[in-house]
Simulated assay, not measured.
Amino acid sequence: MKKWMLALVATAILGTSAAFAQIVVRVAPPPPVVEARPIAPSPRHVWIDGYHRWDGHRYVWVGGRWVIPPRRGGVWIPGHWDRRPGGYIWIQGHWR
């Protein structure tokens, strides 16, 4: 029983630390792509801009999209590349 609990705690700690791991990209991201924004599917939809994603070798453009906020009055805070010592890290977008 003790070994099982120890294994469970170790897995939880390792899983949590992996979630906070950040990849530092030495190459600066390219400028954002100017996209033609299609018509919103409904008045409730919010546009989320596209962004450059690092695939391990190069930046890949992920196109923007219309989404319905998770709650009324939700505001999308866009993700962005943040300059840090040694390169750039991706700060994930989120709802506020």
Rank of each mutant, 00 (worst) to 15 (best):
K3H: 10
W4F: 13
W4L: 14
W4T: 12
A7S: 14
L8M: 14
V9I: 14
V9A: 11
V9C: 09
A10C: 02
A10K: 00
A12M: 15
A12G: 14
T16I: 12
A18W: 15
A18F: 15
A18I: 14
F20N: 06
A21I: 04
Q22H: 03
I23W: 04
V24N: 10
V27A: 06
A28N: 07
P30T: 04
P31H: 03
P32T: 12
P32R: 10
V33C: 05
E35Q: 05
E35G: 03
E35R: 06
A36F: 13
R37K: 15
I39V: 14
A40Q: 11
P41V: 13
R44K: 13
R44L: 08
I48P: 03
D49F: 00
G50D: 04
R53A: 15
H57A: 13
R58V: 05
V62W: 06
V62Y: 08
G64I: 05
G64A: 07
R65F: 11
I68N: 12
G73Y: 09
G73Q: 07
W76E: 02
I77F: 10
I77H: 12
I77N: 11
G79D: 03
R84S: 03
R84D: 06
R84I: 08
G87W: 01
G87C: 05
G87M: 06
Y88E: 03
I89W: 01
I89A: 02
W90M: 01
I91M: 10
Q92P: 08
Q92A: 14
Q92G: 12
G93V: 02
R96K: 07
